[in-house]
């Protein structure tokens, strides 16, 4: 019997599901290896039974979400968190930068009391996560690599070096030389420097490397006359949940 796999989403834009749905021909080959029993974006069937692999997108932001992810975890042999929202909290983490009550009132106004909410958490701050596919959105080849490892029953470790490494292998002109701030030097690689290859900056969507040189990075910013405020802002766009717990 082929391994049963289901895709779930929590607080997110579902863009990572779209990346999977957009795998095209590769998706057909992936489907030969697994039996997809639930995937809201591409099919209407639901599955309440045991799972070999749960693929989870989105952050945990409500009490109901906590219960739901715990149930999914309980019936899944393997859990893959995919997309920044799930792996590091992602943009949802920005919520944690202000008091909860204030945020609720800003978003829901006078109906705030009907929308109970809790601080944003990446999935691994609630349940055990076996595999991570970082990124906003995920880099499809990495998703396939992680899925392959899960199917092979072997661990898969995302790289722990800077995006600069891949960017340099792609021989891009360094964005710092173009006078633009880029989070590449402190951000975990594994995306094949997708954004910088296309002229964009790195927003740090894959989270920080495990051992960033914070002091050194500040000195570099000062040298390039980049205001710290600007960088911290950029940094907290994806990485605001970081203080709460370690991400691998």
């Amino acid at each position: 019997m082929k391994p049963r796999i289901a895709f779930f989403d929590f607080a997110c834009c579902e863009g990572c599901q779209l990346q999977v749905a957009n795998l095209g021909e590769a998706l057909l080959d992936v489907l030969k290896l697994v039996d997809v029993v639930e995937f809201r974006e591409v099919m209407s069937e639901k599955w309440a039974g045991p799972l070999d692999i749960a693929v989870v997108e989105g952050s945990i932001t409500t009490k109901e979400a906590v219960e739901r992810i715990e149930k999914i975890r309980a019936r899944s042999r393997i859990l893959i968190a995919y997309g920044s929202c799930a792996t590091i909290g992602g943009v949802n983490g920005m919520k944690n930068r202000s008091p909860l009550e204030e945020i609720r009132r800003t978003v829901y106004g006078e109906h705030a009391h009907t929308f109970p909410t809790i601080a944003t958490r990446p999935v691994d701050q609630v349940v055990k996560v076996d595999y991570y596919v970082h990124g906003c959105p995920i880099w499809p080849p990495e998703f396939i690599e992680v899925l392959q490892a899960a199917l092979q029953g072997v661990p898969c470790f995302p790289p722990d070096h800077a995006v600069c490494v891949e960017c340099k292998l792609n021989e891009n002109v360094c964005l710092y030389d173009k006078g633009v701030t880029c989070l590449g030097p402190v951000t975990r690689a594994g995306c094949n420097s997708w954004c910088t290859n296309n002229g964009n900056i790195c927003y740090g969507c894959r989270g920080l490397v495990s051992n960033p040189n914070t002091k050194g990075a500040m000195d570099v910013l000062a040298r390039y006359r980049i205001p710290l405020e600007l960088v911290l802002n950029k940094m907290s766009m994806y990485n605001a949940c970081r203080e709460q717990g370690k991400t691998p």
């Binding site: 490892a149 092979q152 029953g153 072997v154 661990p155 898969c156 470790f157």
Partner: peptide
């Protein structure tokens, strides 16, 4: 402890 050794153990 790692990827290859996990595969070997299977």
């Amino acid at each position: 402890v790692g990827k290859v050794t996990a595969a070997l153990h299977q």
